[in-house]
């Protein structure tokens, strides 16, 4: 299996505070990898290092085969990123957003047009193409944001709590998109607060106080902690947490 994320004792310190401590993990091509942890456990810090947004204090990591210290530009070309907070420009139309983000990642205008049309058709947004993104319901925005994040066919897409506050039906439609992308070979690295979504992941890790406390498939974790649901596994692990936000 091809490894697309490989970290070795990746650590981030802020003074005396160790935000992320010696994180070692491997994520494979086409995998849906869940990255869980309570608020303040160090998820965001770790994810920022992997996206090349922040330099680790020590340790090493390769993203899509590129070193995160020396080849941040290549790393950025090969990843997509979507967060709950920033997704798209609300004052641009659906198509303008697609054109803009496609352009940023260096897609040709013909490519953008073709991919954009396909994307709009897939999401059923044909009648909304010329509408401002701000006027779309939250669920559609999130689906659109995800599709835009993978428009340039990245090797990996990082999703930071992509489904917060979205209704359960839309949440599932969102996960359908994720499954489909994974099926096409895009690796999904996702954080979530919904424990049922954790079950959708092929494997997942749970961070507590800056350390990766558990890493396995959902069923193996449930077995290991004698739990009936991921909720219980998470509760068992995070209960002992010393720090939070």
């Amino acid at each position: 299996m091809e490894t697309v994320i490989k970290t070795h004792e990746l650590t981030k310190r802020y003074g005396d505070f160790i935000a992320a401590n010696a994180i070692s993990l491997e994520v494979y091509k086409g995998e849906i990898f869940g990255f869980l942890g309570a608020n303040g456990a160090g998820k965001t810090t770790a994810m920022r290092m992997l996206c090349g947004l922040s330099t680790p204090s020590s340790g090493s990591a390769e993203i899509a085969g590129y070193d995160i210290y020396r080849q941040t530009e290549q790393v950025k070309k090969n990843i997509g990123y979507m967060s709950q907070k920033f997704s798209l420009y609300e004052d641009l139309t659906v198509m303008e957003n697609i054109r803009f983000f496609g352009g940023i990642y260096g897609l040709g205008s013909k490519d953008i047009r073709l991919k954009g049309q396909a994307l709009i058709k897939q999401l059923g947004l044909e009648s909304e193409e010329k509408k401002l993104v701000g006027s779309l319901p939250l669920g559609w925005k999130q689906k659109l944001a995800f599709s835009v994040a993978i428009l340039h066919s990245p090797k990996i897409v990082f999703l930071d709590e992509p489904t917060g506050g979205v209704d359960p039906l839309t949440r599932r439609q969102f996960w359908d998109l994720i499954y489909e992308a994974a099926d096409r070979g895009i690796t999904i690295f996702v954080t979530t607060h919904y424990m049922d979504e954790a079950e959708y992941c092929g494997r997942l890790s749970i961070m507590v106080d800056g350390n990766v406390k558990a890493l396995d498939t959902p069923s193996a974790l449930k077995e290991q902690y004698h739990a009936t649901s991921m909720d219980d596994v998470f509760y068992e692990l995070a209960r002992g947490a010393k720090r939070s936000e």
Binding site: A38, G164, H193, M195
Partner: peptide, 9 residues
């Protein structure tokens, strides 16, 4: 909202 599962419980 935005609170981890332990605190929610």
């Amino acid at each position: 909202t935005g609170v981890d599962p332990v605190s929610r419980k």
